[in-house]
């Protein structure tokens, strides 16, 4: 089996302005991000929004068609992680320390899910993030997220 995801550290050299749309072409199209087929939607100075289309094989409860909780976690994990690099303006190796998700309501069957990750504070070693998921109207969120990422030095692995 091929594990063909390129190393982000080599693709985004130090000193290069971070481009979430470009980076999502790796993070959202290979490995787990590729399985979920995450799409870049937009970004600002400290936020990145991604989206996942509803799919039958992402469902946790076949009776209702509600997506697995972890689909939202993956979406928020990638969006919040990328929000740190976006705020920082460059890539740095980091891993998720913890992530909390509150599910305000289920995401309806068939509906696309958007996840907006926001980096609200950054230190040399920690990125503090929050975010929310919605179905197209950011004023009607379906989940809220908060978490932290820790920098892991100069190596990605």
């Amino acid at each position: 089996m091929a594990f063909g995801k390129p190393d982000l550290g080599s693709i985004v050299p130090k000193g290069t302005e971070f481009d979430p749309a470009l980076v999502n072409k790796m993070m959202g199209k290979f490995g787990h991000g590729g399985f979920l087929d995450m799409e870049y939607v937009g970004h600002g100075a400290d936020w990145v929004e991604l989206a996942i289309d509803w799919r039958e094989d992402l469902v946790a409860d076949p009776d209702t068609g509600i997506l697995a909780s972890a689909v939202i976690i993956s979406l928020m994990d990638n969006a919040t992680s990328m929000s740190i690099w976006t705020k920082l303006g460059e890539f740095r190796p980091q891993v998720t320390m913890d992530l909390r998700i509150d599910y305000l309501r289920p995401s309806p069957s068939g509906e696309r899910v958007y996840g907006r990750g926001i980096c609200y504070h950054l230190t040399n070693s920690i990125g503090f993030v929050r975010g929310f998921a919605h179905n197209g109207n950011p004023d009607a969120p379906l989940a809220h997220a908060s978490g932290t990422f820790i920098r892991i030095g100069d190596r990605i692995s």
């Binding site: 995801k5 490995g31 787990h32 972890a70 689909v71 891993v95 692995s157």
Partner: peptide, 25 residues
């Protein structure tokens, strides 16, 4: 498998979360 991979050679946090979720349920 490739479907659960995050950074090269490692599990994606979301896939680990998915495993935890299925076990919890």
């Amino acid at each position: 498998t490739d479907r659960v991979q995050g950074r090269p050679g490692y599990l994606h946090g979301g896939a680990i979360s998915g495993l935890l979720e299925i076990a919890a349920i």
